[in-house]
């Protein structure tokens, strides 16, 4: 299997899962209600599991996670965005898990190198998507304050959503169809939540789709510094 998995695609998917898992891990001890501590940790653990499988197919998981420089990471800019308030985290989850679910469903249905992984992951991701949708409905159509926060979050993260449908080497999927399905699904959820699809551009001005090419946003460097510091302080040590 190792030889047949395309490296660029494995890194893209693996880094998405790794980085989002890390961000969700930052919630530990800070969640709005105890039940949500458990839920967010479940999602983070699923993603970390996916990341480990994906990274291990193309190298040593720890070398890849801890010893690459920022520019070598291939994750979407969306997943590296800081948690913000709970609304930002939920919208980031909604945007990403809808995409990831569509992607893994298609990969699982095919017979490509990612089919076995996707078959398992698609069930996990279906739950992540459901979690995000349920929260979107409650926060969008909750109080005025929660509605306002959701509007802000939807808009703030909107410009990172175009990148998800950029081509990735070795990822053989119908991106246009996926993009349409994504828009349809997100719009339906937002409408039910009394929210609207934001209107702005779906990619940044100079860095469209650049996460996959190793161009990231400023907060990502700090995130990596924290994540890699201990590992890098003890070269060659095992843990």
């Amino acid at each position: 299997m190792t030889t047949t998995v395309p490296t660029a695609a494995a890194l893209a998917l693996g880094d998405d899962a790794l980085v989002l898992s890390h961000r969700l891990g930052e919630w530990a001890g800070h969640a709005p209600v105890l039940e949500e501590e458990v839920a967010l940790a479940n999602i983070a653990l699923d993603l970390l599991g996916q990341a480990r499988v994906l990274l291990s197919t193309v190298g040593d998981e720890d070398e890849l996670a801890y010893l690459r420089e920022e520019r070598a990471f291939r994750n979407l800019q969306l997943v590296e965005q800081p948690n913000g308030d709970f609304a930002h985290t939920i919208v980031r989850q909604l945007y990403f898990s809808t995409y990831q679910h569509l992607l893994y469903a298609e990969l699982a249905a095919g017979d490509g190198p990612f089919a076995p992984l996707a078959a398992k992951a698609v069930k996990e991701v279906a739950y992540h998507r459901d979690h995000a949708e349920q929260w979107t409905l409650r926060l969008g159509d909750g109080t005025d304050a929660s509605h306002e926060r959701m509007l802000r979050a939807c808009t703030a993260l909107w410009r990172f959503t175009g990148e998800m449908f950029q081509p990735v080497d070795g990822l053989d999927v119908d991106r246009t169809r996926m993009d349409t399905a994504w828009l349809e699904s997100v719009e339906t959820v937002l409408r039910r939540a009394t929210l609207l699809l934001p209107e702005g551009p779906r990619s940044g001005a100079w860095s469209a789709g650049a996460g996959r090419q190793g161009v990231h946003t400023e907060p990502f460097g700090r995130m990596l510094a924290e994540m890699q510091h201990l590992h890098r302080s003890h070269p060659g040590a095992s843990w």
């Binding site: 039940e35 458990v38 839920a39 349920q134």
Partner: peptide, 8 residues
Amino acid sequence: FALRNARD
């Protein structure tokens, strides 16, 4: 949510 929380 009670169902989902219970599952988790």
